[in-house]
């Protein structure tokens, strides 16, 4: 799961010039993959580090809203599925941190950037999970939007990122289905359950639509990222695709989308939605969403509480090395 606007915020990447840059662009144009030790423009490297690490942070912070319901999952089957899903998100964060580390940034640096608030993560995870139906809505809508975003990145020009995405997309195929299954069970359940499902859709629909980031007209990095094949489709194209596949699914569930302007354009075959409230998006992005503080605080608390554990393991490893060295020394020294 992940992301929106992973190309923000940050400095505008400056296109590199010179012979090396031209050779690099020619390789990208020819759909060759760029690998860690290959020459690359510094702006390409920085854009990738920012995007991949934000993507990784999104997975890690994304464990929290759903993790909130692990202890309260309503059946043992749901509990097992939810643990497996939240665990996958941790795994996906790891794959992505690994990919970013090939660009010369360490996990410790990236974690520090997350905990200090310097790095962004997907705003969607700053919304609360208030009922069990939110777990269904996240799987169905948030993972659904994430898949739209992520599938094209499997063909990204940077090899390690593309390979991590292939693995992630393969593993995520069950995430959206389990979310839809939860929604379907609730929608076909009692009145209280159906109301729970509708309420969750009401709260998650617009944030999910906003996951694709600002409109193309307002998105400053799109053009350069497309030239570098870090990004393959524009925000609006992906958003439209998401809406077109999701609206019929909501209808199937017998739920109502919270948009009075929603209509199917018979000519184009696309759904048109009402105006997006970007002021909310920017408020959440700036740190003023309902759970921004709680999410970061949870990550900081886990990191701080784990410090003595990580140090203990590192200290033990040093002892093992010292003992091995001493043993070897004695062996050599003995007649």
């Amino acid at each position: 799961m992940y992301t929106q606007a992973l190309d923000s915020p940050g400095k505008d990447p400056v296109a590199a010039t010179g012979e090396a840059a031209e050779r690099f662009q020619a390789r990208v144009d020819a759909d060759e993959k760029i690998e860690p030790k290959d020459w690359m423009p510094e702006a390409y490297r920085q854009t990738l580090i920012r995007q991949i690490s934000q993507h990784a942070h999104s997975e890690i912070v994304g464990m929290l809203p759903e993790g909130n319901w692990i202890t309260r999952a309503p059946s043992l089957r749901r509990k097992a599925v939810l643990i497996a899903k939240v665990q996958d998100e941790g795994g996906h964060g790891m794959y992505l941190y690994s990919a970013a580390e090939t660009l010369g940034v360490s996990r410790a640096q990236m974690v520090e950037q997350l905990l200090s608030g310097a790095a962004k993560y997907s705003s969607i995870f700053n919304y609360p999970t208030l009922t069990w139906a939110d777990v269904g809505a996240i799987g169905w809508l948030v993972d659904g939007a994430a898949i739209m975003n992520q599938v094209p990145i499997c063909r990204c020009s940077y090899g390690p990122y593309a390979r991590a995405m292939v693995r992630i997309c393969r593993e995520e195929s069950f995430h959206q289905r389990q979310g839809f299954e939860i929604m379907m069970t609730l929608a076909r359940g009692g009145a209280a359950q159906k109301a729970m499902a509708q309420d969750a859709l009401d709260r998650w629909w617009w944030p999910s639509v906003m996951m694709f980031g600002p409109s193309d007209a307002d998105s400053k990095h799109t053009a350069q990222s497309m030239r570098w094949k870090i990004k393959r489709f524009s925000n609006d194209e992906l958003r439209q695709k998401f809406i077109d596949v999701t609206v019929p699914q909501a209808h199937f569930l017998g739920l109502t989308l919270p948009d009075a302007h929603l209509r199917l354009d018979e000519v184009s075959g696309h759904y048109e939605i009402g105006p997006i409230d970007w002021s909310e998006f920017h408020a959440v992005l700036k740190g003023n969403g309902p759970c921004n503080r709680e999410r970061l605080e949870a990550r900081r608390a886990a990191h701080a509480a784990g410090e003595w554990v990580r140090e203990a393991a590192a200290a033990h490893a040093r002892k093992l090395e010292d003992r091995a060295a001493t043993a070897q020394h004695q062996e050599r020294g003995s007649p």
Binding site: Y95, S98, R167, A313, H316
Partner: peptide, 12 residues
């Protein structure tokens, strides 16, 4: 090769 991870020692 499938990726990387962090660990304190080889057993871990």
């Amino acid at each position: 090769h499938v990726g990387s991870l962090h660990a304190a020692d080889s057993r871990m």
